[in-house]
Design a protein around this nucleic acid. Structure first.
Length: 561
RNA sequence: UGGGGUGUGGUGUAACUGGCAACACAGCAGAUUCUGGAUCUGUUAUUCAAGGUUCGAUUCCUUGCACCCCAACCA
């Protein structure tokens, strides 16, 4: 992989996870071994937040010569589907990590079951037949101790019998649960006899109808880690209070090897973005966006379609580091990494999004000239391309002002600008419609400036892009703004949807140089002076704006207000 | 209400056993430029608060404050 970017050189930036793993290796913990896992639940698509987790999980393993497995946390048959499994594998690979053969928590259902019997036999688990509400009420509250279940001291033999019959499918959903016998008085609510198994007569995406008994996350996770030989189980901050339970289970089991250790770090949040799967699902259900790969979404599929390079996302994730502070990164920083990368890799093309006609009045009628333009000034190896120039061109509507404001230095009556890679032209006049809108601009060109330079060194303040009307091809361009106008969606009212930007997508039909017709699906090019645009990977002639160029002129305008 | 976690410029992340608070983005000013892009130079701005220990505290101690997480048979 060639790295064209100029990302800041931050080899192995310090972070506490890295320090911790390094210290473990130093101390010989786990025999110097490092193994992590990335454990998504296959109930939705991966998003930018997962990208960070993937980079941390796979990255740490890679860095220390360990391994990282992609493990599906498929303990809840109600919401999980194979469709998501495939998409997740695909997304991980796209991001640049090799998931290998994925593993599944459901691979361990039998072992988990055997361990559950072990816990019952040793007096650390029991079958309870109270309903969810009762159990919840008995759990007590913050500062209030819990009440022990009347079935807590049920005979191990009786629990075992019940548990086996639960497995055999003798009982309906919710009739019984298996609970850990921990401590109903514990300050940490997680330890107040948590549920290990619930009965669900549901079809599981992998085990089919083999089970009606399904383990909860807490009961499955640490044990799966132990079975696989995970050493460092890295997860997000909200599992902090689960760590005690994670350890509790492991300490009460005859483990095949070292006891894995859980470490929590802050998940990635971005300004103007939501990552809640539920809310993302709602955006789609409500028709606010067009699907899981709508380029306005933070899903990996959407970002990919929008033209975000995977390597730029990885660099961003590496750069923001790993900490325990709840934080929200400015999306502008992510965009900086995207631009920084694309600036070096994306070929340049000219496209006019809001065209007005420019007539070169002294151009020989019918004459066509072929100009050679550089494909990427940042990379000579990309070579040049031919672009046809004629006396009738499309230029961008905002590149002309009949009545210029201060500091505007594009085309205005009497001024001269450069048409990129072609000629200097001087504006001689313009026409308007009855409403006063400019319909056509007139100019003369200087034949001595062919290629874009004046032989006597005359300077020009601006360079604008253009397309010959006779050679232009139509392009559909989708411009995207932030989906949420607020930095923290929902900060004001509690409901992120109150901050929805209903005009986040604008589709225009623009005029582009003919070379654009041959852009491959998925390829990202820079429309000169406008931004980076990704050719849709299905719909021909459709371009998604990946990200705009930094716009100093917009800044100037804002300041003058 | 009990427990746990976290507080460093506008944002995010660093600072080895206590020794000039740094890096990036953003901002501002300038140079340069065939993209008002890129590049280059300069620059503004930071240790939650109050005490204490110390020659010296982001770091150690005490007290307080703020924010986040935990009472699903979700993960």
């Amino acid at each position: 992989m060639t790295d064209h970017s100029r990302a800041p050189d931050t080899p192995a930036a310090a972070n506490f996870v890295r320090d911790l793993v390094a210290a473990d290796i130093q101390a010989g913990t786990f025999g110097g071994r490092v193994q992590t896992r990335f454990p998504p639940e296959p109930n939705g698509y991966l998003h930018i937040g997962h990208a960070k987790a993937i980079c941390v999980d796979f990255g740490i393993a890679e860095e220390f010569g360990g391994i990282c497995k992609l493990r599906f946390d498929d303990t809840n048959p109600e919401t999980e589907e194979t469709e998501y499994v495939d998409a997740i594998v695909d997304d991980v690979r796209w991001l640049g990590f090799e998931p290998g053969e994925p593993v599944y928590a459901s691979d361990y259902f039998e072992q988990l079951y055997q361990w559950a019997e072990h816990l019952i036999s040793t007096g650390f688990a029991y079958v309870d037949d109270q309903d969810a509400d009762t159990i919840s009420a008995q759990r007590g509250g913050y500062g209030k101790p819990g009440i022990e279940s009347p079935h807590r001291d049920r005979d191990a033999a009786e629990s075992l019998d019940l548990f086996r019959r639960m497995r055999a499918g003798e009982f309906p959903d919710g009739a019984y649960v298996l609970r850990a016998k921990a401590d109903m008085q514990h300050d940490n609510m997680q330890l107040r006899d948590p549920i290990m198994y619930r009965i669900r007569h549901e079809h599981h995406h992998r085990t089919g109808d083999a089970w009606v008994l399904y383990p909860t996350y807490d009961w499955a996770h640490g044990q799966s880690d132990a079975i696989e030989g995970v050493t460092h189980s890295l997860c997000s901050l909200e599992f902090d209070s689960h760590r005690a339970l994670y350890d509790w289970y492991l300490e009460h089991l005859p483990l095949p090897g070292d006891q894995p250790r859980q470490t929590e770090f802050a998940r990635l949040e971005l300004t103007h973005t939501i990552t809640s799967k539920r809310k993302l699902r709602q955006l789609i259900a409500d028709g606010v966006v067009d699907g899981w790969d709508d380029p306005r979404l933070p899903t990996l599929r959407a970002l990919r379609r929008r033209g975000y390079p995977a390597s730029a996302i990885r660099e961003f994730c590496e750069f923001i580091g790993v900490a325990k502070t709840n934080s929200r990164h400015q999306i502008e920083l992510l965009e900086w990494f995207i631009r920084n990368q694309l600036n070096h890799t994306a070929q340049r093309r000219m496209a006019v999004l809001r065209p007005i006609k420019l007539v070169v009045t002294n151009w020989p009628a019918g004459h066509v000239e072929t100009m050679k333009l550089q494909n990427n000034p940042e990379n000579d190896a990309d070579g040049t391309r031919d672009v046809q120039f004629t006396g009738e061109l499309w230029i961008e509507a905002d590149d002309f002002m009949a009545d210029p404001t201060p500091k505007y230095y594009r085309l205005t009556p009497g001024t001269e600008v450069r048409l990129r890679g072609a000629f200097f032209v001087k504006c001689t006049g313009y026409e308007t419609d009855m409403l006063g809108n400019v319909t056509e601009v007139h100019c003369t060109y200087d034949p001595d400036t062919r290629g874009g330079n004046s032989p006597e060194g005359r300077k020009v303040k601006a360079t604008i892009h253009w397309v010959s009307t006779a050679h232009a091809v139509d392009v559909q361009v989708a411009l995207y703004e932030r989906l949420f106008s607020a930095e923290v969606p929902g900060d004001r009212t509690g409901d992120p949807f109150d901050d929805l930007n209903r005009e986040s997508k604008t589709v225009l039909t623009g005029k582009a140089e003919s070379a654009l017709a041959s852009v491959a699906f998925g390829q990202v090019v820079q429309f000169e002076r406008l931004g980076y645009f990704a050719a849709d990977d299905v719909e021909s002639g459709l371009f998604h704006r990946t990200v705009g160029l930094k716009d100093e002129w917009a800044n100037v305008q804002k300041r003058s207000k």
